[in-house]
């Protein structure tokens, strides 16, 4: 098993005819991901040429789901239209029995996201990952299911779950697991925006219940209190070992570090507080991302898994 997506998941791409959509659709197809089609309003009936196949374009998500039976919709729609794309996908999935929405788009207005997340929350069978995230990947035996922009080749199928707010830092965590001979069950980038869909706790809960996953690497960053809340949840509910890192120990208060959500304000959301919460919850802490591999080995040994 894995969480939320598996090797056979069928992926629809909203915005497939755009530059980003076509580029990443190609990369996904190269990684053996089952891309079944795309959606671009007004371009229904066209086809997009991917390396291994030609996929149809639909005018609406609903039509795309009817024709392809997709269970994942991946959004590469420009920021000003992205929230509407999320809402469209949520409505369509809710009607057809559920599904996963992954929104890669960066720079969506926060008030748009408040509305989009409120809609997704009304659809119990629908999950949203992102926005402003690298996506989600479940490595398989040959390639795998890659619903996002991460480089597929750095991954390998394995037993470590990874969840992170940051993109390239997720890749760093993947490389760290590989450096100690461990592969990944599923890697989820939840994104660095202040208002988003899936959070740390959703991911940890899913990893806890996933038989393939034996341990989790969790990467947070400054801002908000999601890490503290996750740590609280871990202390009460998690039996599998977790290795944690928080980026931004050196960030000054009041300065936004790239991500809209990565800001220490009113003395809250510092890395020191988050590391402390991790430690109090029994999470194995790596102070340096280059240490994640070694700390993971220690955690696995303590649990009798190595």
């Amino acid at each position: 098993m894995s969480i939320w997506i598996h090797e056979e998941s069928k992926v629809l791409i909203q915005g497939i005819t755009g530059k980003q959509g076509t580029f990443h659709g190609t990369k996904m197809d190269e990684y053996n991901t089952n891309v079944v089609g795309g959606v671009t309003p007004g371009k229904g009936g066209q086809f997009v040429e991917l390396p291994n196949k030609k996929v149809p374009v639909f005018n609406t998500v609903s039509e795309g789901l009817d024709e392809t039976g997709a269970d994942v919709s991946l959004i590469y729609v420009p920021a000003r239209f992205a929230a509407a794309a999320i809402i469209e996908a949520a409505d369509a999935f809710q009607e057809k029995g559920g599904g996963l929405i992954v929104c890669i788009t960066e720079g969506i207005p926060i008030l748009d996201m408040i509305k989009a997340v409120a809609r997704v929350d009304q659809c119990p069978e629908v999950r949203l990952i992102g926005p402003n995230c690298p996506g989600i990947i479940t490595p398989g035996d040959v390639g795998g299911c890659k619903a996002g922009i991460m480089p597929g080749f750095i991954h390998a199928k394995g037993r470590i779950g990874i969840v992170s707010k940051s993109g390239t830092l997720t890749y760093e965590a993947v490389a760290q697991t590989m450096s100690v001979g461990e592969g990944q069950s599923t890697c989820v980038g939840i994104g660095g925006d202040p208002v988003n869909g899936t959070g740390f706790i959703d991911c940890l809960d899913a990893f806890e219940n996933d038989p393939q996953t034996v341990a989790v690497v969790m990467i947070g960053e400054i801002g908000g209190s999601a890490e503290e809340e996750a740590a609280d949840w871990v202390a009460k509910n998690m039996t599998k070992p977790i290795v944690g890192f928080v980026a931004g120990s050196t960030a000054p208060p009041g300065k936004r570090m790239g991500h809209a959500g990565a800001i220490i304000s009113g003395g809250k959301g510092t890395a020191a507080e988050k590391f402390k919460a991790f430690e109090n919850a029994g999470i194995y802490v790596a102070r340096d991302p280059s240490e994640i591999g070694n700390v993971l080995v220690r955690a696995l040994k303590d649990a009798g898994l190595r």
């Binding site: 993109g167 960053e221 400054i222 890192f245 050196t250 790239g258 991500h259 990565a262 991302p289």
Partner: peptide, 21 residues
């Protein structure tokens, strides 16, 4: 650096080794 998280982590590691970003 490429990526906000990795950029922050790079600053943190410089500091860990006794430097200042």
């Amino acid at each position: 650096v490429n990526g906000a998280g990795l950029a922050m982590a790079s600053m943190d590691v410089i500091k860990l080794y006794g430097g200042e970003p």
